Computed example of a mutant assay.
Amino acid sequence: MMTMLGGVALAAPGKDPAPLVLAGDGLAAGGKTLKFDRTAKAQAIAIVTVVRGKPLKLGNHGDCGQGDEIGFATFAGGLELSFVKGKLSGWTVDEGGDARLRTARGIGLGSTLAAVRKAYPDVDIEDFSDSGGPGPSFQREGGPNGFLNGKTASARVTDLWAGATCMAGI
């Protein structure tokens, strides 16, 4: 018997057809592509549930400086999906999260700045620690973006995100 969630047929536990892959414009999970501003909240949650299990928490961050309230669904491994006006708008993987969550180019928590630069040669590095900000980060038009624990080539990614999230208010 097939289980349905949000109109999506769920694979039996342990039968995941594909891993979750992070992207600057969405993510892929369970063999499905989820695009920012196009994928409905219920569909995104249902598909990611196939790969990560049921959300640990659903809620609303309120207005994170972008003019719209941002809802969220938090999953195991520090993965949080963000939603604006009922559509997937972004994702984050927080410090301490699952280092196996990676982009198609292999970047995830724990990746070095050297690996980030190799995977995304057009990345910009900024350091906001002098102005009371969170410290070094990398930004890339179209994402992904992340925080680093330093500015050297061996510095590591501590947080990763793309799209409209409350992590960076972008």
Rank of each mutant, 00 (worst) to 15 (best):
P134D: 13
E95Y: 06
G146W: 06
K87M: 10
K118W: 02
S89C: 04
D98Y: 08
K118D: 05
G77C: 02
V93C: 09
L81H: 00
K118L: 10
E126G: 09
F83M: 07
G133D: 06
F83P: 01
G142A: 13
G135E: 13
D124Q: 15
I107H: 07
G108T: 02
D127L: 06
T103Y: 07
K87F: 12
V116Y: 04
D94N: 11
G132R: 11
D124T: 07
R102N: 12
L101N: 01
G90I: 02
S137T: 08
G86F: 01
T112I: 04
V116H: 06
R102Q: 14
R117M: 08
L81T: 00
E126D: 15
G143K: 00
G133C: 12
P136I: 04
L148P: 06
D127A: 11
G78Y: 00
L88W: 01
D130P: 13
L113C: 07
L101D: 00
G106Q: 15
W91M: 08
P136H: 03
G97T: 08
F128N: 13
E95R: 14
V84F: 01
A99S: 15
K87S: 05
G135W: 10
L81I: 01
P121V: 01
L101G: 06
I107P: 14
S137F: 06
G90F: 00
A99Y: 15
F128R: 09
R117W: 04
A104P: 02
D127R: 03
S111C: 15
N149R: 08
L148M: 12
L88R: 02
R105T: 12
F147C: 10
F147W: 07
L148E: 09
D94P: 13
G90N: 01
G86L: 09
V116S: 15
D94G: 12
R105S: 13
G143C: 12
L113V: 09
F128Q: 10
A104Q: 00
L79V: 07
K85A: 04
S82E: 11
L113E: 04
G78Q: 05
L113F: 10
V84W: 00
G135N: 05
A119F: 06
E126H: 03
L88N: 09
D122R: 03
Y120M: 14
G96Q: 12
N149W: 01
L109Y: 15
K118A: 15
D127W: 01
E80Q: 12
G132T: 06
D98V: 05
T92C: 08
R117A: 09
R100W: 04
R102M: 08
K87I: 03
L88A: 06
G142S: 09
G96D: 14
G142C: 07
S89R: 00
L81M: 02
